[in-house]
Amino acid sequence: MPKKPKKIRVLLAKPGLDGHDRGIKVIAAAFRDAGMEVIYTGLRQTPEMIVDAAVQEDVDAVGISILSGAHMTLFPAILDEMKRRGADEILLFGGGIIPDEDIEELEKMGVARLFTPGAPTDDVINYLRKAVEAKKSDEEVM
């Protein structure tokens, strides 16, 4: 039997206090329609909650939406928490109103990819598929 491509599991979360969830809900629906399993955690997630959820759900990637301008605080906090929990092989990507120079700095820190307003959902889907496929795992089960 030909092996089916692995089902992509992705966690979408909104950290911080901002409640504008239009973008993240559109992305959630687009990912679902692209055949992915989308775990949506809802609003106001702390970095601890996000990483805890990502670990428990064993997702391939975590997507974050920030529109409040707190991205330089929140993305690094999530990266740190991922390292602390030994979950830094999970891909962290995001979207929001983020100036170019901040994008550069965040990507240097380890955020895999940042999308800005107007990015077509197809671009995000294609990016995610490729990035997940490129991930390698050498873990042994038993």
Binding site: R32, D33, A34, E37, I39, Y40, M49, A53, E57
Partner: peptide, 27 residues
């Protein structure tokens, strides 16, 4: 599409993150 939107964590709120509770969404 084979996809799923798993939304049960939305209602979780603040559970302790000390391992005493584990939550998994399944499609």
């Amino acid at each position: 599409t084979g996809g799923a939107l798993l939304g049960d964590r939305v209602r979780m709120g603040d559970f302790p993150t000390d391992g005493s509770v584990f939550f998994r969404s399944m499609a």
